[in-house]
């Protein structure tokens, strides 16, 4: 564990906590893409298959349970909670997320470290996480005013993978130049997808104005 990865995990955890707080406190999920949240549940389920078979550390197991639990509860709130589900922008959140999942799965079948169920699904989760934010970014462009909590949520979500990129650079130089192309390239794509959001988020923060993404 290094400080960059710990900061990345904490940023990731904070983003999820902020989203849960927004939903529970305001009883609203306006501006949040259910498609993206469902993709994240698939990412965690396919990535943490070895949760009960391989013990790495107390921290690792705890965080996996927290990420699984919170992401599933967010989808539950948005789908089934009687008040929250009324606030879901169903007609704007129209991104066909299967168009993202299927190519990622096919790619995982083609490019992976080893051809086992666990490894192919883990690789699928890495590819899927890279593009899972797209429905959310599309929804942000469609929704006129983005509330602060939603903006902060997306920013922290993008920041966590950027910190993981730094963690991978650090590990490359400190752990006998271990090369890990699949997470590296996926993480690079993932962080790059946030580039224009980061630009408008920082601009709105500097000028102290409402966050607005160009249509």
């Amino acid at each position: 564990m290094n400080v960059f990865r710990l900061a990345g995990d904490m940023t990731h955890l904070l983003s999820i906590i902020i989203l849960l707080l927004k939903i529970r406190a305001t009883k609203s999920c306006t501006g949040i893409s259910l498609k993206t949240q469902e993709l994240y549940v698939i990412v965690f389920l396919t990535r943490y298959l070895d949760l009960f078979t391989k013990y790495i550390s107390f921290y690792n197991t705890t965080m996996k349970l927290v990420f699984l639990g919170t992401s599933i509860s967010i989808v539950w709130y948005m789908r089934y909670h009687k008040v929250v589900k009324q606030t879901y922008n169903k007609d704007q959140d129209t991104f066909r997320h299967y168009f993202l999942a299927i190519p990622c799965f096919l790619l995982a079948l083609l490019i992976h470290h080893e051809f086992t169920v666990i490894e192919v699904l883990w690789t699928f989760s890495i590819y899927l996480e890279a593009v899972a934010i797209l429905p959310q970014l599309v929804l942000l462009q469609r929704s006129r005013n983005i509330d602060n909590l939603t903006g902060n949520y997306v920013f922290l979500l993008g920041a966590y993978r950027a910190l993981y990129l730094v963690n991978w650079v650090y590990r490359y130089f400190t752990e006998n130049h271990l090369v890990r192309w699949i997470p590296w390239l996926s993480g690079l794509v993932q962080t790059t997808l946030y580039a224009d959001f980061f630009y408008y988020y920082i601009k709105s923060w500097k000028n102290n104005e409402k966050l607005q993404l160009p249509a």
Partner: peptide
């Protein structure tokens, strides 16, 4: 092994 070393992240 390299395998182990790469799966200790979330």
């Amino acid at each position: 092994s390299e395998e182990e070393a790469t799966k200790d992240e979330l």
